[in-house]
Design a protein around this nucleic acid. Structure first.
Length: 585
RNA sequence: GCCGGGGUAGCUCAGUGGUAGAGCAGCUGAUUCGUAAUCAGCAGGUCGUGGGUUCAACCCCCAUCCCCGGCUCCA
């Protein structure tokens, strides 16, 4: 964009939104400076969802301040001040901001290589800024400040912590309202809230932070997921393993985890004079199984899978419900193969992953290919060949992906799949990683067709990532309204009066014998009450038993949506739900 | 870990130094009822934990644990 030119840009474009929100962040900074002249300005960019501005100020911002700042901003917008762009020499700009005491701006300026910089002025408020901006403050039609948070200067915890105010802006009130409604919806779906309401899991202060207790209904869902996972892995020619939760510290020395992963590992415990360590990874155990006998190229690829529970130290501030915990179960697998088998294996894994994810209703993804980082093991040729194989596989599948340069793990390149949930939010779950490190460190080999020993390639992969995180994502994805095959209680039988109890219990037994998860409510309550309770617990089907049903030997069936289906004989009803369960709809 | 906010009954939340409250859930009883809450009664708290100030602390001070929103980091 040429300097000083006015170009029309639409809010619907990414650039347009950024300019608009960036301008709003300037207006916020202006308001803050008017109210707190001692506040020093740091940075104030637009984000995907809105904008923020960081301030260095002794007095913390209070929630009440937010409303006052909003009011002030509204005033600035009403005045419709023009944003005036000025170009000046860097020295002069440094001079200007030094005089104003804006030390952060000076620091930013000193890092700008250009001789000329631009500043924007709006009714006396001056800010260093590349721009562009909206022509005047009156262009901002709808905005809202959302939250206050701490944030390190330049994102480094070595620097001073500043105070950040988050906000968002839209081109009209309706879009703003829609966005705020979206935030409400997100709050309603919060897996921690639903987890308590539906009695799925809890975290207890007594047990410890980041350690999950799966309650009966949550455990039932987990079991259903695990059964599905195991069945499909066996079908896909994986072999299932179980391994212990602790192992000798030496093992972790050998694997290199102690060098590369120490800060995420717990302190060792001593058993009969030997130190043991809680496992942060499953790989060394699978390698041990591999090494338990001589391997031939004929066996390849060897695929070991395990729902392996690992423990990792996470800093207290990062723990978050099921999404970030200290003990979790990975749906882990390690594949041993020859280098020329990598591509086929990756293709297999991609198919398998997408199939599993699709079963849970995730049909859109962001895929990332991470390449060689600065610190790495293995040879550059290894990395190149493996990265090419990953690329090739993605291309063959016609999957679009982005390359994350240098973001691979130290031991190999990887593919990460981020799933998009029903609110279009991204979650990192699946990961496929090539590992050059472990075969080397554990000196694993296979006997090739030439009768000599060779080093296999090891691929590490997790589809759901961790059961805990995946479950958290699932809860939010479905808003707690699990599809029938996952629902902990699939059918609840409700009676109108006491005299219907025997019939209800008999019906329940028939369904239960067919493998349906059924609960009977013969409590002394009105039917409206029972329906309300079943609906709140999001039970897919309520079956109502009264005089009419017994007389006709038919079931009245109400779906959790409120829709009535039937009446059915019990056999007819069973067929209906059986079909739905089998279809995993 | 860092910045800010918070922790009162199982849950949601009132309670500004002077005898701890409500709704829902729970229990008991009555009621036997047709598509999202029947009525009545009862019970339930070391006010996160430990220390301090005070005649007196849920309330003020200090420490600590945990939770929430972010930062940083990750499955």
């Amino acid at each position: 964009m040429n300097k000083g030119n006015i170009v029309e840009i639409d809010f619907n474009s990414k650039e347009g939104r950024e300019i608009y929100r960036h301008s709003t962040s300037h207006i916020m900074a202006h308001a803050v400076k008017e109210m707190f002249p001692e506040a020093k300005l740091a940075i104030g960019p637009a984000t995907d969802e809105g904008f923020y501005y960081d301030f260095d100020i002794d007095r913390p911002f209070m929630p009440e301040d937010i409303a006052a700042i909003e009011k002030k901003m509204a005033g600035i917008i009403k005045k419709n001040n023009a944003f005036v762009r000025k170009t000046l020499h860097k020295k002069d700009a440094i001079q200007l901001f030094k005089k104003k005491g804006e030390v952060y701006k000076v620091e930013l300026l000193e890092d700008i290589p250009d001789e000329e910089v631009t500043i924007y002025e709006e009714n006396g408020f001056v800010d260093l800024c590349r721009g562009p901006h909206v022509p005047s403050t009156g262009a901002i039609k709808a905005f809202k400040l959302l939250s206050i948070a701490g944030a390190y200067w330049r994102g480094s915890e070595k620097n001073k912590m500043l105070q950040r105010i988050y906000g968002t802006a839209f081109s009209n009130e309706k879009d703003l309202k829609d966005y705020l409604d979206f935030l409400e919806e997100v709050k309603k779906r919060d897996h921690r809230k639903l987890g308590r309401e539906l009695d799925l899991f809890s975290v207890s202060e007594e047990i410890g932070p980041g350690l999950i207790l799966w309650h009966p209904d949550g455990a039932l869902i987990r079991k259903t997921i695990e059964d599905f996972w195991r069945d499909e892995h066996l079908k896909a020619d994986y072999k299932l393993l179980y391994s212990p939760h602790i192992a000798k510290l030496n093992l972790w020395q050998k694997s290199g985890h102690l060098d590369f992963y120490r800060e995420n590992m717990y302190s060792p415990m001593e058993i009969e004079g030997i130190e043991y360590e809680l496992k942060p990874m499953n790989c060394p155990f699978h390698i041990s199984v591999y090494k338990s006998s001589l391997r031939s190229y004929r066996e390849f690829p060897i695929r070991y899978a395990e729902l392996g529970t690992v423990y990792r130290y996470e800093r207290s501030g990062v723990l978050h419900g099921l999404l970030r915990v200290r003990g979790f179960t990975q749906d882990d697998a390690h594949i041993f193969c020859r280098e020329d088998q990598i591509e086929d294996e990756i293709l297999n894994i991609l198919d398998f992953t997408l199939f599993i994810l699709k079963t849970f209703g995730f049909e859109s993804y962001d895929i990332y290919l991470s390449t060689q980082p600065e610190k790495y093991v293995g040879t550059s040729e290894n990395w190149e060949r493996a990265t090419a194989a990953l690329k090739q596989a993605l291309d063959k599948k016609g999957l679009s992906y982005r390359i994350d340069p240098g973001e691979g793990v130290f031991y190999g390149p990887k593919i990460d799949i981020k799933i998009k949930d029903s609110l279009n939010r991204s979650w990192q779950c699946s990961t496929i990683q090539v590992d050059f490190n472990n075969p080397e460190r554990f000196d694993i080999t296979y006997r090739g067709s030439d009768g000599k020993d060779h080093k296999p390639i090891m691929i590490h992969r997790a589809l759901m990532g961790s059961l805990e995180r995946f479950f958290g994502v699932l809860i939010e994805h479905y808003a707690g309204i699990f599809p029938l095959w996952l629902a902990p209680v699939q059918v609840e039988i409700l009676t109108i009066a006491d005299r219907h109890s025997d019939y209800a219990i008999k019906a329940a037994e028939i369904l239960k014998a067919e493998g349906i998860r059924v609960r009977v409510n013969i409590e002394n309550e009105k039917i409206g009450h029972k329906i309300r309770e079943a609906t709140i617990r999001k039970v897919p089907y309520s079956v109502i038993i009264g005089d009419k049903e017994i007389a006709e030997n038919r079931l009245t069936v109400r779906k959790r949506s409120g829709e009535n289906i039937g009446p059915f004989t019990i056999e007819e009803f069973f067929k209906v739900i059986k079909k739905e369960v089998d279809g995993k709809q």
